[in-house]
């Protein structure tokens, strides 16, 4: 418990609480449960992608292709629905997961088998995936009236007062908490990022672990792709443009070290929620939504400054009398 109080997560939680209290002092409606649920739902896509990005960053990689993956999968799902309205949502969900995973695997294979730096790989696949959307759609939009009710209704359907989209975010977050803490793969993400050299000696295949991280990240991007186009009832080439950087921002604010091997799922969740709350609160407190970008930029810089400060290595203590004070 005392360890938690000193952690990044505790400080971030406090920051979020302070932010909420500040908003509530003037606009109590914002912290009404129904509104908080709405904010959470709105932040769900960011949470989903940030969770996937977290395992990628943990393994010392980065995935800049997630937003393009999301958009391509979303477009495919939307076009499938527009052409064959009868295809059940369950099939579309599976398709989205598989398509996203395959795109993640392409990234993972290039990193694993050909040893190309992840930033180069995903920069490349990002533009390729975006381009493919244009090729398959011809630049046309898929609009609400072309989509079936079942298709658009799924993420919005309410279950115990929360939409399915939010439930999926909760479910995936839960799976991540469990998977990261209690599966060998989850621990391998930390090992690979923390000390790749040592990971090899403990029988962990570094490249394969990175491949798994990219696959998970891609799978979540695909899933979010369907949920995104269904929720907003529209699909076009540029949806979620630039979203990859917001996703990375959520991770960084959540304390995931870009150097790999350090950070927690709770941190990522809090980082995403922080951005979500800021975004939703601005119109409420009557600040122009155009402030959002600058605020999240500042938050990133503050977060990384804070993380780097606290994580800085101290020199070794050689003097006997200095030992007691340290």
């Amino acid at each position: 418990m005392t360890q938690f109080l000193k952690s990044r997560e505790a400080i971030l939680s406090a920051a979020i609480l302070a932010l909420l209290m500040l908003i509530a002092s003037r606009f109590p409606a914002f912290v009404a449960p129904s509104n908080l649920a709405r904010v959470f739902t709105d932040t769900s896509p960011l949470i989903l992608l940030a969770l996937g990005q977290t395992v990628v960053i943990l393994t010392r990689c980065i995935d800049l292709s997630v937003a393009a993956n999301l958009a391509l999968t979303g477009m495919v799902c939307a076009m499938l629905n527009a052409t064959y309205p009868g295809v059940p949502v369950a099939v579309i969900l599976v398709l989205a997961l598989v398509m996203g995973a395959v795109m993640g695997m392409v990234n993972g294979l290039l990193v694993w088998k050909l040893n190309i730096p992840p930033i180069v790989v995903t920069l490349g696949t990002m533009t390729i995936y975006r381009g493919i959307i244009f090729v398959i759609s011809g630049g046309a939009w898929v609009n609400a009236h072309e989509m079936s009710h079942a298709f658009t209704g799924f993420p919005r359907a309410e279950l115990l007062g929360l939409p399915v989209l939010a439930w999926i975010a909760i479910l995936v977050t839960g799976l991540f908490f469990l998977g990261i803490a209690r599966t060998p793969l989850g621990r391998a993400f930390y090992a690979v990022g923390g000390n790749p050299h040592a990971a090899v000696y403990t029988g962990i295949d570094v490249g394969k672990t990175q491949f798994m991280a990219f696959t998970i990240s891609g799978m979540l991007a695909g899933l979010t792709g369907y949920l995104w186009v269904a929720r907003y009832s529209v699909a076009y080439v540029d949806i979620a443009g630039g979203f990859e950087l917001e996703v990375v921002a959520a991770c960084v604010i959540g304390g995931i070290s870009i150097a790999g091997g350090a950070g927690t799922i709770l941190g990522t969740l809090l980082g995403a929620l922080f951005l979500g709350i800021v975004k939703n609160a601005l119109p409420v407190v009557d600040i122009s939504p155009f402030w959002q970008l600058a605020i999240s930029g500042t938050a990133i810089i503050v977060a990384v400054a804070f993380n780097t400060r606290s994580g800085r290595n101290k020199g070794r203590i050689i003097l006997k009398r200095a030992e007691g004070h340290a």
Binding site: L245, A249, I258, G297, I300, I301, A305, T308
Partner: peptide
């Protein structure tokens, strides 16, 4: 931020990327 405070440039510049353009948005809006 990078050389005096010792922060990783990839993260710093993702931050300033939002910040600099964010200021443009604050000034200009749409």
């Amino acid at each position: 931020l990078v050389t005096k405070m010792g922060l990783p440039s990839i993260v710093v510049t993702i931050g300033t990327m939002s910040l600099f353009r964010g200021i443009s948005y604050i000034v200009l809006g749409d």
